[in-house]
Each structure stands twice: as C-alpha cells, then as structure tokens.
Simulated scan of single mutants.
Amino acid sequence: MAMWTAHHWSDMAVKTGAPWWAHLMMYAGGLTMVVAGGTAAVAQFASTTAENAVPQENILGDAQAEVEEIKGPLNILVLGVDKQGDSTRSDTMILVHINEDLTETTMVSLPRDLWVEIPDCGPGYSNNPCENKINHSASISGDWEVTRPNVVQTIFDLTGVEFHMGATVDFEGFLGLVDMVGEIELCPWHEIQSIHGEKRTFPEGCAMYDKDESLDLIRQRYGWYWDSDWEEGRGGDYGRQAMQQQAIKSLLKAFKEEGYLTDPGKLTDILEGFGDSLTIDKPDEWTVTDLAVNLRDIDPESITSVQVPSTPDKTTLDGTPVDIVMTHEGAEQEAADALWAALQNDTLDQWMTQYPEWVKTPGKTSTETPTGAAEESASATTD
C-alpha cells in the first residue's frame, strides 16, 4: 500500500478526563462514603441503588481474564454503542488500563478505520474472515448479540489482551443527562459546520449548548480535517473524541455546581438517570460500590491517553478507494506489539518512555484555514 502523506498523524498525548462510565463508578463510591456515617439501612440502600442502576450483560466471552479479588492491574474494554431502532453497532472502542496500585489509568482508543483481520466479516463475505476497518466487525448484523462477540474477538485477536471487565456505553443516552442541567459548555477550537440535520454552524470558542446542539457537535468528525487538526493530533475521529471528552467534563462540572455530587438524593437521580445507556460485564463477586471504593485513588484529571501506533494510508475495497489507518511493518508494528504486551504485563510506564511519540500532548487552538482535506475524506467510502 502507498503511504498517505496528506496529513501528519501523530495523535500525541494529553491528560484527559475519564470515560463517563468510570465517573459513574466513582459516583457510586462517593454515595457510599457520603452515607457511611448514617444508618446501616441507608448505606444498604445506597449500595443497592448503585448496583441496580447498572444493567449487566455478557460482553467479554472468552476474552475475560480469570479474577476473584478487585486488585490491579486491571484491563477494561469499553465499547461505545450507537442504538438506532432495533439495531446496535459499536463506533468507539477503548482499552482502559489501571496499574497494579489502582492509582494510574491509561486509555487506548482504537481508531475506527484501523485495518485489521476480522474473524467474521458478515453475509457479504459468507461470514468468512477478511481484512477490513475494525468498525466493520460491528456491522455484520443489526443484532447486537451477533456483532458484540465479533467485535470483542477482533480486538482480542489484535491485542492478545485479556480483560477483567467490560462496558458498553450509549453516548447519546448519556447526553440525555444534559436535560438535568439544561446546557453544557463546549469549546470548538475552530469553526465547524455540521453535516447533520439542521446543518448548524458552531463558532470557534466556548459557548453553552443544549442537549440537541451538544449531541450534534460531539458527533462531528469530518469537520476536523484542517491541516492544523492533524498536526495537533485532533484530526478526524480524534477530533470527535476530543469533543466527547469536553462534553463529559462540562457535564460533570455542571453536576458539581448544582450539588449533584454531594447530595445523596440528587446522586441517586444521576444513577437512575443513566437507564440502559450503560451496561457492564464484571465478575459476580464484584459489586459496583466495591469497585468504586477500590478505584477511589484514581484522579480523573491525570488519566493518560495513548494512540495505537499507526498512520493514515489508502487501499481499495471491492474496487473502491478507501482511506484507512494502518499499523505498518517496522517501527509502528514493533511499537504496537510492545503496547499490547505492556497492557497485559502492566509495564506501560516503560512503554511510554520508550515510545513517547504515541503518547498524547495538548494541541494549541487552531487559527489556520482549512485545506481540501475535509472534502477528500468526507467523500471517501467508510463503514
């Protein structure tokens, strides 16, 4: 394959907020601690409320590690799902690693266009294996019971990482919580034109947005194709991830300002407000509140993000040109193999020292004008 050099893709490193499901765990633990000085009946109510607020399902299958006690290191697989009618697909795949001391967390987001081997490529391939974008593994059926194990097996085949816990997240359902605070603040680093529905224009800088506006903005990815976006590591889908992280932080800030995080009654409203937008897969011996208490020393603001060693490329699929992300043989493959081993062996500190180019760094606010990259990528065939 010919290397695509239209953009510099070095999605380098920033300390970023935790995924919202992790904050739910912390909220549950916080609720337990708030009522710890009260009666046993109140404490039991808090624990039961937290446990019942989080539906459980079998997510990991054979990729689940054998574990009994809640102790580090832990690897957690998070699948962001898009529910449309009776169909469910996964459009976000994140590997979360917590170190042995349960004090430090690293997030590895798998690019949705990452070119990988998929064990079941769907009816169009007679359900045989193929090479395709990783998000194709989630499009083989509208039945989540069929696609979910295919997604998990694809990730397990790629990384060899065994997971202690899994979670699925309906981000649109989560954004419904914006209704509880009315509006949240979002700060696009340059003007962006929506490709959805009302075709809104979001100006550069911070502004308050309601649920519909927020959801529209955090779903955008084709607008983040300026040269400066790629140089800052926020191009394409990585720009969308950055806006999602902003939404999470802004919502948490709003909840804190309105007293949701210190009032047990309001905190229960949050837990119940999640509905079925979060499901988890955890050992039966673990409770949500026990997990939260064990993870209480994690600072959400110190969570590190890592990019899978890879760069943009092009290929053809059924005769159609397709933009992809690929881990190329040589230095990238060496770094990727070392990353999967570091996740499994709890040696990410050493890995980040050896491969700092794949650890994210904050980008500066864009002031440059866009190039034709957005039009080029938006016209490409994607899953």
Rank of each mutant, 00 (worst) to 15 (best):
Y225H: 15
L217N: 00
L217M: 14
G205L: 10
D216S: 09
Q246E: 15
F202V: 03
D227K: 13
G233T: 07
R221G: 01
E213M: 10
G239W: 00
S228Q: 13
R234V: 15
Q246T: 10
W224V: 00
D229G: 03
K249G: 13
D210M: 08
E213K: 07
D227I: 04
L252C: 07
Q245A: 13
D227G: 10
R221I: 04
D229C: 12
G239N: 01
Q246P: 12
R240E: 05
Y222W: 13
L251Y: 03
E232R: 08
E232L: 12
D227P: 06
M243C: 05
W226L: 08
M208P: 03
Q245W: 07
L252F: 13
G205S: 09
R221L: 06
M243P: 01
K199G: 09
I218W: 00
Y222D: 13
L252A: 14
G223M: 01
M208N: 10
G236V: 06
D216M: 06
R200I: 14
S250R: 06
Y225A: 12
R219T: 04
D229A: 09
T201V: 15
L217H: 05
Y222L: 07
F202P: 00
T201W: 06
L251W: 06
R219K: 10
Y222N: 12
D212M: 15
K211F: 14
L217A: 04
R221T: 05
W230H: 07
R240I: 02
S228C: 15
W224K: 01
C206E: 12
K211Q: 14
W230C: 05
G239F: 00
W226S: 13
Q245I: 14
E213N: 08
S214Q: 04
Q241F: 05
A207Y: 10
G205Y: 14
R221A: 02
R234F: 05
Y209C: 06
L252I: 15
G223P: 03
Y238G: 01
Q220G: 04
T201E: 07
D237R: 00
W224R: 04
A207R: 11
D229I: 01
E213F: 08
G239M: 00
W224A: 02
E231M: 08
C206N: 10
S214W: 06
K249E: 13
K199E: 09
Q241T: 11
I248R: 06
R200V: 09
S214Y: 03
Y238E: 06
A207G: 13
I248N: 10
Y225M: 11
T201Y: 06
Y222T: 12
Y222E: 11
G233K: 03
E232Y: 13
G233Q: 05
E204W: 02
D212R: 12
G223S: 14
L215I: 09
R221C: 01
L251G: 05
